[in-house]
Amino acid sequence: MADHWITQSKAAADAHELKRPVLKNCIKAFLVGGIICTIGQLVTLLLMLYFPFTEQTAGNPTVAIMVFFSMLLTGFGLYHKLGQFAGAGSAVPVTGFGNAVVSAAIEHRSEGLVLGVGGNIFKLAGSVIVFGVISAFIIALIKTVLFQLGVI
């Protein structure tokens, strides 16, 4: 009898569930992500025009500058509004990484500098770093093996 009501209730709850508007979210993410990347491109261009950076070398400073932008936006409390609107569009570019680091640091400031900020700053970004390093290692391994075998 109890099981009966569990399934009944689950069905009733599911019937009223609001699905995530996936298509709408995708479009918003595409537009906002695209705009963020265009701004990044602009930064690259400015670096090339006014500083001795080539397309090859402008990448790293561009990333640094974009992260800096998102840190400012996070600090002023604007980035989460963008995050709720754009979802993946603002989370996937490197600005999302900057946001994750800074917001965690701000949130845990009340627990002190060492245990709070230091311990929690990579609460979210930590997994990005870990899996980034691991996947880079695996890809490099595959490439090396293929090179040695003479496939590439």
């Binding site: 569930e17 609001l18 699905k19 995530r20 508007p21 979210n25 996070t74 980035y79 989460h80 995050g83 709720q84 754009a86 979802g87 993946a88 603002s90 989370a91 999302g96 946001n99 994750a100 917001s103 965690a104 701000i106 949130e107 979210l124």
Partner: peptide, 17 residues
């Protein structure tokens, strides 16, 4: 938010539920 969920401040998007 800090206790239970990842706040939107972390860049996540909340579903309509």
């Amino acid at each position: 938010e800090k206790q239970f969920r990842y706040p939107t401040e972390y860049g996540g998007q909340k579903p309509p539920t």
